[in-house]
Design a protein around this nucleic acid. Sequence first.
DNA 1: CGGACTTACATGGTATCTCATGGGAAATCA
DNA 2: TGATTTCCCATGAGATACCATGTAAGTCCG
Lengths: 151, 151
Amino acid sequence: MKAFIGTFVNKIDAKGRVSVPAPFRAVVQAKGMNAVALYPSPTEACAEGCGMDRIDTLVDAMPDDFSPIARNNDMAEIILASARETPFDADGRVVLPEDFIAHAGLSERAAFVGKGRVFQIWDPDKLAESHAALKQRIAAQRKAASGKGGA
Amino acid sequence: MKAFIGTFVNKIDAKGRVSVPAPFRAVVQAKGMNAVALYPSPTEACAEGCGMDRIDTLVDAMPDDFSPIARNNDMAEIILASARETPFDADGRVVLPEDFIAHAGLSERAAFVGKGRVFQIWDPDKLAESHAALKQRIAAQRKAASGKGGA
DNA sequence: CGGACTTACATGGTATCTCATGGGAAATCA
DNA sequence: TGATTTCCCATGAGATACCATGTAAGTCCG
């Protein structure tokens, strides 16, 4: 199964359009789809994207029965409430909804970041900050583990 | 299978009419239907809607036999009792029944919220409150899990 | 080994169409 | 007949489909 990997920075035009990187487009088009699902990340300052097949998985995760004791699935609920199916135009671009741009703090350029089954869309500056913090956490974890004789 | 996803806010006119968002309309029309089923949510301050096919699922959930020991399905019973089939007009609008408007506390605008197999109709202000609480629950869950060393 | 050509991808602009919304006429019910 | 509901049409804004350009990389040919 093809996955979303790598980072690509593309330009956002005046209408909020942005080219989805060709490798990412290939991932969803390989599944016969011509659109991506986008939604604001519930936990980070970015937008997140995936194929519609992943949305179907979320739908299945929603309480489908009519039991009054049905468990909630907060994450699925917030994503389904905020997601949008954004089709590709003829050239592989999508239109970023206005509220997603606001949530992610996007302006001129959008960084598409592969995360495996999903991808994220960041403002390049905010992405750099996030990655700096990430590397610090890794360093801290290595330091914490070094006492145990790890490599 | 197409699902109800996303949130769309439309205006309620003086006659109680409101445009069903085109993507939602497409979901039910793809199944050959030209109406939605609406009912007051048994658990929340909103109206809920779905295709008539889902009502059929509810009917199947009702006890069908004449046995005195037939099990009840309270949720299905209350939904079937209060649901109404509301057809689209030529432009894809429906008329919200007066009592549903009252139950959901609707006034000028209606927020259609996708929930996968069903959708909900909220007053935009009440929806914002509900989502704020939802995000807090998610944040609390993440905080509770963070001690396990996850990224 | 170098240069021209081709292809694929990103980007910008324009035209067209769909959708949300408002108003009014016709029909139905009491 | 009066009130209420249903159907139809008009309109403007916003979204989408289409077309054209630029550019970089890769390939084929000389």
